[in-house]
């Protein structure tokens, strides 16, 4: 089973890299871009794990290792 986890800064945390990307897009004429948040993507290939177990284990992995809960949040889904 493959899962994808998306980690990004919490809304309350300033994201200077996202701001820089936004400014670049505005400079290029994409004036409709209101905000940019930059994040990280992780794809995990899991073996011998049921979907129920994945629903318990993936958030555990994400909050324990992949994201720092003080500044980051995550969403995830099953790819295949």
């Amino acid at each position: 089973m493959k899962v994808r986890i998306l980690v990004s800064f919490k809304d309350s945390v300033l994201d200077p890299q996202g701001q820089t990307v936004k400014n670049a897009l505005l400079t290029l004429g994409y004036g409709f871009v209101r905000d940019v948040r930059q994040g990280k993507v992780f794809e995990l290939d899991l073996e011998g794990v049921s979907e129920d177990e994945a629903r318990r284990l993936v958030p555990e992995i994400a909050s324990k290792v992949l994201a720092n809960p003080i500044i980051e949040t995550f969403v995830w889904d099953i790819l295949a």
């Binding site: 945390v13 300033l14 200077p16 890299q17 820089t20 720092n68 003080i70 500044i71």
Partner: peptide
């Protein structure tokens, strides 16, 4: 990261 001190580090404000 170990949690021995509170908080976290972000990228410097000027990147």
């Amino acid at each position: 990261e170990m949690g021995l001190l509170p908080g976290a580090m972000l990228r410097n404000k000027n990147l």
